[in-house]
Computed example of a mutant assay.
Amino acid sequence: MREWLINRLQIPQRTVLNRKIPKKAFFTQTDLSTTEKELFTSDIEGMHLISVMNQQSMNIPSFQDDEFNYSEVVWIYVDLRITKNINKIASAIHKAIPNPVVLVAGSSEGRILLSTSHKRLNKNDKAKVVVDQTAITDWFNPREENTAYSNLLNALIVSNLSFENLHSFYEDIHLWIICEELIQLIGTIPTNSVKREEVVNILINVQKHCKDVEQLQLEQKGQIDFGNKMELHIKIKQQEQQINLHLQQIRELC
């Protein structure tokens, strides 16, 4: 799968390492909790450093400001024995590696998922980073053609990404991975990066309304008074109407 994915995303050969990362070495060089180490031992079959992309290998300028210091983007592939703890494993990998990581996880059934997370400089210690919220896709079959997921992989072909600087390059990947949620919601993704910017902004509103619905539903379950239940029911319907309106806006953009 690793070689297939390298070819599918047209990762430049000059950046490809495809080198095994011993889990023991990963433990000794990173700050993982005991629970995270146990997950790596029980759930992960193997880890590989697929590619290191920097100014020398990709001719993309590094990027540094008060928030970010991006001199390399690393691609990690993880073969999983068990997939149920992938969110915890992805978070641990992003936390452990100071460079921005494009994480690809593979299952024994031949499915993959993708994950990214921006790394901001720690304001109190510039030698450390703070990990932003992790973006992670659902599992999908990458070999299926003419699907929304094949369109996602097309968008992630390296030559289709921004080469302005390494932060823009990584942000391009990150935003496409965020857009994957739309495949589950409406069955498609934007056709280009220009429309994607507007779509992501609307998607953030959808996510907010979805959280509001979840909170209202929890409140409703705890209510005994019928009048209060009906009031919460009306509020839930109002939030759902907003979700549907936003999804319709997204459909028109896609």
Rank of each mutant, 00 (worst) to 15 (best):
Q239G: 03
S107L: 07
Y170C: 03
G106T: 10
K84M: 07
E72C: 10
G227A: 13
A127G: 08
G227Y: 12
D43K: 00
D79A: 09
Y170R: 00
Q215K: 13
Y149C: 01
V52N: 12
V101L: 06
S162E: 05
L232R: 02
Q55D: 09
I243V: 12
P190D: 05
G222N: 13
I44T: 06
G106D: 05
S108D: 08
S107E: 06
R111A: 11
N192H: 01
L161E: 01
T191Q: 15
I76Q: 10
R196Y: 00
V73K: 01
N7V: 09
T30L: 02
D79G: 14
V78Q: 01
G110Y: 09
L156V: 10
F226D: 09
T30F: 05
I204W: 00
E72W: 05
A148C: 03
I93H: 04
S115L: 05
L175A: 08
F26H: 02
S62R: 13
E36C: 04
P22H: 07
I236M: 01
F226L: 15
P22Y: 10
K235T: 05
G227D: 10
R14H: 11
L175F: 13
S42P: 09
I93Y: 07
F27N: 03
L5F: 12
Y77T: 04
K84L: 10
K126Y: 15
V200G: 01
N18G: 02
V158Q: 08
E252Q: 09
I236V: 06
D66G: 07
E180W: 05
N151M: 12
F63D: 03
E109W: 07
K20R: 14
I6P: 08
A90Q: 03
E231C: 02
Q249L: 09
I224L: 10
I86S: 15
S42Y: 08
V206F: 00
N69L: 09
E36K: 02
F163C: 06
Q207A: 08
A90T: 02
N69P: 02
I97A: 04
T41E: 08
S71N: 12
Q184C: 06
K84N: 10
N59K: 12
K95N: 11
D43W: 00
P142E: 04
G227L: 08
Q242G: 02
H94S: 12
D43R: 00
E164C: 04
Q56E: 14
K195M: 09
R251Q: 04
L9A: 01
Q29A: 12
E67D: 14
Q248E: 11
L247T: 02
K119N: 06
V129G: 03
L39R: 05
E72R: 15
Y70F: 06
I183V: 03
Q249F: 07
L216H: 04
S57M: 07
I136E: 03
E197P: 07
L182N: 02
E231G: 07
L121H: 12
R8M: 15
E145W: 02
T191I: 11
K229H: 13
V78I: 11
I202S: 11
V199T: 01
I60P: 03
L39N: 08
S51D: 04
K23G: 02
V158C: 09
L17A: 11
V200K: 09
F163P: 09
A96I: 00
A127C: 11
E197C: 07
